[in-house]
Amino acid sequence: MIDKPNLEVGIAGIKLKNPVMTASGTFGYGQEYTPFVDLNRLGAIILKGITLKPKKGNPPPRIIETPSGMLNAIGLQNVGVEILIKEKLPYLKKFNTPVIINISGDTIEEYMELVRRLEEVSKEMGVAGLEVNISCPNVKKGGMTWGTEAKATYKIVSTIRKVTTLPLIVKLTPNVTDIKIIAQAAEEAGADALSLINTLVGMAVDIDSRKPKLANVSGGLSGPAIKPVALWMVWQVFQTVNIPIIGIGGIIKVEDALEFIIAGARAIEIGTANLVNPQTTVEIIEGIEKYLMENNIKDINELVGSMKI
């Protein structure tokens, strides 16, 4: 048995002590989880999606449970980048874990201004990288439209690339006909890594009132229900691009995380599972280490994309 396998991975030039990160929107601004998780243990912390200006979000009900998953229509409620910088990032600086900011915008200009601002403060505030959300299904303008068309993806990513040297992760939506084309466009535009998948658009109906169960009518499906879809997409994209992939979708236990890694993900993000069991991240880190030891694998990187077919 291996004594101490290597869990360290590199993503977009960011060194992670292990491949486990938190998925945007399910881990708040990090601090909320300190009663349950030593933030120093995490590979990276990805924060709730941020926009240039604060956003009110959608009316309630915003979430509803569905078979093996949930629909959410938060509508990107967030404090805006200035409060993020002033009130949220200082707290995270004391941890020895890279902080990645998930960003959203309605227009190209908004993305650019947001990225410039984050670039400006990145050294001082410890911003390790950006995850560009071009895939939010729950906002009217912008949001997902950037991620459903290859040309738009290329445009937004290449524009952001020009205004920042920060590591750039592009987060893809599964709500497309062919994710490979979008992935390619993002790579060509200068993305350092890709993360996938965001939520799948769905809905639920109350048969008594005949109203949609979400005030927003539609929402994004997440949780175990989407894992097979996410895995298939990661595997397809893995065969298409040369940049690292971060796997996301329905990971609630170590076996799920390993599936993603074997299918080509160099790192993974945990989302909905944080809401259910706030210690999921740490349990999965420990589980991965155990798996590597038991299977005599010296380095997690050997496992990435090792699927046998």
Partner: peptide, 17 residues
């Protein structure tokens, strides 16, 4: 009362006006 996700202020699922 509102439907809840995390219960600890992180997911913004449970809001009221």
């Amino acid at each position: 009362e509102e439907r809840m996700g995390c219960g600890i202020g992180a997911c913004l699922g449970c809001v009221c006006k």
